[in-house]
């Protein structure tokens, strides 16, 4: 806002409809380089839907999302390749892989050794594996998990699992990191540590977009905060501006909405995140329902 920076992520007029239900309505939104941006809103305001539009899980019904000037491809793995990495609200590590392996998987898009090179094990392969491992160890060092490289991810305590997820996302060398409720379930100390970590990530030159419930965390952290209510962007501005806005207070404390789009959306998201079918629709139902 104060300085002219280049936009990393630019969403313009993003609308997402599920059947007759509009979960997100013409949202314009920008994240610039070197910025930490927060996205808040009451439950069911369309945050996660919007988030999924950014990660390629959904293709917006209307509007476009561009990353560094190019329209985002409609597949999550291509979005990651393009340079947007993400974490999950309910941690989704590869539980039965080691800490190091988790981060190495994160390196997938930045390495290209295929089956043949794995089978032939030429010098190129060894070099790439070594470089990947070094890079992964740097990242583990960065989040403070280097000592636990050979532990299985499932055996880490909760806070460390969050850190590992961030390290794994960083391994894809993103230009933008999306954090989906990174402090959910954390105590104040852990939240504080996460704050430090996010600042450190920003200092590496990576833009960060955080979705959160915890207002204090957001306002401490973010250069700019956007508030999403009922699928529409209500306010956007610095922490002070947003905090002072009456409508935000009303939205958070005030009356619940009629025809709250939230229910359907949360159900969608729940269905999407059970892993069975990360798709916009719930798994098909008995012939009845439609």
């Amino acid at each position: 806002m104060t300085t002219m920076t280049t936009p990393v992520l630019q969403a313009s007029g993003v609308t997402m409809r599920f059947g007759g239900l509009t979960a997100v309505r013409s949202v314009d939104f920008t994240v610039n380089t070197g910025e930490i941006v927060g996205l808040i809103g009451p439950n069911g305001a369309g945050k996660t839907t919007f988030f999924n539009c950014l990660t390629g899980l959904y293709v917006p019904t209307e509007g476009t999302v561009t990353y560094k000037g190019t329209v985002l491809p409609p597949k999550p793995h291509l979005v990651t390749k393009a340079g947007i990495a993400r974490t999950f609200q309910n941690i989704r590590l590869f539980a039965n892989m080691t800490v190091l392996e988790n981060v190495l998987v994160g390196r997938h898009t930045r390495t290209k050794e295929g089956l043949w090179s794995a089978l032939l094990r030429g010098p190129g392969f060894r070099k790439a594996e070594k470089a990947s491992e070094e890079r992964a160890m740097e990242l583990l060092d960065f989040v403070g998990l280097a000592a636990k490289r050979d532990h299985l991810a499932r055996n880490l305590p909760y806070g460390e699992q969050r850190k590992l997820e961030i390290a794994r996302a960083l391994a894809s060398e993103p230009g933008l990191l999306l954090l989906d409720e990174p402090t959910a379930g954390m105590n104040p100390q852990e939240t504080r540590a996460t704050e430090e970590l996010v600042f450190a990530i920003r200092d590496k030159g990576i833009a960060v977009l955080v979705i959160e419930h915890d207002m204090r965390f957001i306002f401490n952290l973010c250069d700019r905060v956007a508030v999403l209510v009922q699928g529409e962007k209500l306010v956007e501005g610095t922490s002070d501006v947003v905090q002072a806005d009456e409508r935000v207070v009303a939205a958070y404390l005030g009356e619940p909405f009629e025809g709250d789009p939230g229910t359907a959306e949360t159900a969608d998201v729940a269905a999407a995140e059970t892993g069975a079918a990360p798709q916009s629709s719930t798994t098909s139902t008995k012939g009845e329902a439609q």
Partner: peptide, 24 residues
């Protein structure tokens, strides 16, 4: 024990997360 093997295991463990890590 390679990039491809790790991505197989990742897919087996959690396909959504693996996809979010850029694995096709």
């Amino acid at each position: 024990d390679s990039r491809i093997g790790r991505s197989w295991i990742a897919i087996r463990e959690d396909e959504t997360a693996a996809t979010a890590m850029g694995i096709n």
